[in-house]
Amino acid sequence: MRDETLEPLPKNWEMAYTDTGMIYFIDHNTKTTTWLDPRLCKK
């Protein structure tokens, strides 16, 4: 489920979907991926 109230992704981040429809996030700065939304992981 998407939460439209979240702010935009940080610079150089992208949201993508797996072949089965699961959301993951791509950090183009470090060339890594994560299941965790970077907008929710702020310190």
Rank of each mutant, 00 (worst) to 15 (best):
residue 4 E to Q: 13
residue 8 P to A: 12
residue 33 T to Q: 04
residue 25 F to K: 01
residue 32 T to Y: 04
residue 26 I to P: 00
residue 25 F to W: 11
residue 19 D to P: 11
residue 35 W to H: 04
residue 19 D to E: 14
residue 36 L to I: 11
residue 15 M to D: 04
residue 31 K to W: 06
residue 41 C to D: 14
residue 23 I to P: 14
residue 12 N to G: 15
residue 4 E to K: 10
residue 37 D to H: 08
residue 28 H to S: 06
residue 35 W to S: 07
residue 33 T to A: 05
residue 4 E to Y: 05
residue 19 D to W: 04
residue 23 I to M: 14
residue 16 A to P: 00
residue 21 G to P: 01
residue 21 G to M: 03
residue 6 L to D: 11
residue 2 R to Y: 07
residue 24 Y to E: 03
residue 38 P to W: 00
residue 40 L to W: 08
residue 15 M to G: 05
residue 37 D to T: 06
residue 35 W to D: 05
residue 12 N to A: 08
residue 31 K to Y: 04
residue 41 C to E: 15
residue 15 M to Y: 08
residue 5 T to K: 15
residue 40 L to R: 13
residue 18 T to S: 09
residue 43 K to I: 09
residue 13 W to G: 01
residue 24 Y to D: 03
residue 3 D to N: 09
residue 13 W to P: 01
residue 22 M to A: 15
residue 18 T to K: 03
residue 2 R to N: 13
residue 6 L to M: 11
residue 30 T to G: 05
residue 17 Y to M: 09
residue 30 T to M: 07
residue 1 M to Q: 06
residue 27 D to K: 00
residue 15 M to E: 12
residue 43 K to G: 15
residue 26 I to L: 10
residue 6 L to G: 14
residue 31 K to V: 04
residue 42 K to A: 14
residue 40 L to S: 12
residue 24 Y to S: 01
residue 39 R to S: 06
residue 40 L to G: 13
residue 6 L to Q: 15
residue 37 D to L: 00
residue 42 K to H: 11
residue 34 T to N: 02
residue 29 N to M: 09
residue 41 C to W: 14
residue 16 A to H: 03
residue 18 T to M: 05
residue 34 T to I: 00
residue 2 R to L: 11
residue 35 W to P: 05
residue 36 L to G: 09
residue 27 D to Y: 09
residue 10 P to C: 03
residue 21 G to D: 06
residue 35 W to Q: 07
residue 40 L to Q: 14
residue 31 K to E: 13
residue 5 T to C: 09
residue 41 C to I: 15
residue 1 M to V: 10
residue 21 G to V: 00
residue 1 M to D: 13
residue 32 T to K: 06
residue 37 D to P: 08
residue 25 F to V: 00
residue 18 T to A: 08
residue 29 N to D: 09
residue 29 N to V: 10
residue 23 I to C: 14
residue 14 E to V: 05
residue 38 P to M: 01
residue 12 N to I: 00
residue 4 E to I: 11
residue 16 A to Q: 09
residue 25 F to T: 02
residue 21 G to A: 05
residue 7 E to P: 14
residue 25 F to S: 02
residue 3 D to Y: 05
residue 16 A to K: 12
residue 19 D to M: 03
residue 3 D to G: 12
residue 43 K to Q: 15
residue 9 L to K: 01
residue 11 K to P: 14
residue 16 A to S: 07
residue 34 T to S: 10
residue 34 T to G: 02
residue 11 K to M: 08
residue 36 L to S: 12
residue 31 K to T: 07
residue 43 K to N: 12
residue 7 E to G: 14
residue 15 M to P: 10
residue 26 I to F: 03
residue 19 D to Q: 12
residue 14 E to P: 00
residue 25 F to M: 01
residue 30 T to K: 08
residue 17 Y to H: 09
residue 13 W to K: 02
residue 41 C to P: 15
residue 26 I to W: 02
residue 43 K to W: 12
residue 8 P to S: 05
residue 2 R to S: 08
residue 26 I to H: 03
residue 10 P to M: 02
residue 34 T to A: 02
residue 9 L to A: 01
residue 10 P to I: 00
residue 25 F to E: 03
residue 43 K to C: 12
residue 20 T to R: 12
residue 37 D to W: 02
residue 20 T to P: 03
residue 31 K to G: 10
residue 12 N to Q: 07
residue 19 D to T: 11
residue 18 T to N: 04
residue 25 F to P: 01
residue 11 K to R: 12
residue 8 P to I: 08
residue 31 K to A: 10
residue 41 C to L: 14
residue 43 K to L: 14
residue 38 P to Y: 00
residue 13 W to E: 01
residue 17 Y to R: 15
residue 34 T to K: 01
residue 11 K to F: 07
residue 7 E to Q: 13
residue 42 K to E: 15
residue 18 T to W: 02
residue 15 M to Q: 14
residue 42 K to L: 11
residue 23 I to T: 14
residue 28 H to Q: 06
residue 22 M to L: 13
residue 16 A to G: 09
residue 43 K to R: 15
residue 26 I to M: 08
residue 4 E to P: 10
residue 23 I to W: 06
residue 4 E to M: 10
residue 30 T to L: 07
residue 31 K to S: 12
residue 41 C to A: 15
residue 2 R to W: 07
residue 18 T to P: 00
residue 13 W to Q: 01
residue 27 D to L: 00
residue 12 N to R: 07
residue 18 T to C: 07
residue 17 Y to E: 15
residue 15 M to K: 13
residue 39 R to I: 05
residue 36 L to Q: 13
residue 23 I to K: 15
residue 14 E to A: 09
residue 7 E to T: 11
residue 10 P to D: 03
residue 42 K to R: 13
residue 7 E to S: 12
residue 8 P to T: 08
residue 11 K to E: 15
residue 40 L to C: 13
residue 15 M to I: 15
residue 23 I to D: 05
residue 36 L to M: 14
residue 22 M to I: 06
residue 42 K to D: 14
residue 29 N to L: 09
residue 8 P to L: 08
residue 5 T to V: 12
residue 36 L to W: 12
residue 43 K to V: 12
residue 33 T to S: 08
residue 4 E to L: 10
residue 2 R to F: 08
residue 15 M to A: 13
residue 14 E to S: 09
residue 15 M to T: 13
residue 22 M to C: 13
residue 32 T to W: 03
residue 21 G to R: 07
residue 23 I to A: 15
residue 18 T to Q: 02
residue 16 A to V: 07
residue 40 L to K: 14
residue 42 K to T: 13
residue 36 L to V: 13
residue 42 K to P: 10
residue 12 N to V: 00
residue 20 T to G: 13
residue 8 P to G: 09
residue 9 L to D: 01
residue 28 H to R: 08
residue 10 P to H: 02
residue 31 K to D: 07
residue 22 M to R: 12
residue 38 P to L: 00
residue 38 P to K: 00
residue 6 L to F: 09
residue 30 T to S: 12
residue 13 W to I: 04
residue 33 T to V: 06
residue 41 C to H: 15
residue 20 T to Q: 11
residue 38 P to T: 00
residue 35 W to A: 06
residue 14 E to H: 04
residue 16 A to E: 06
residue 1 M to W: 07
residue 12 N to E: 07
residue 27 D to E: 06
residue 26 I to Y: 03
residue 14 E to R: 06
residue 21 G to E: 07
residue 22 M to W: 04
residue 24 Y to W: 02
residue 7 E to L: 09
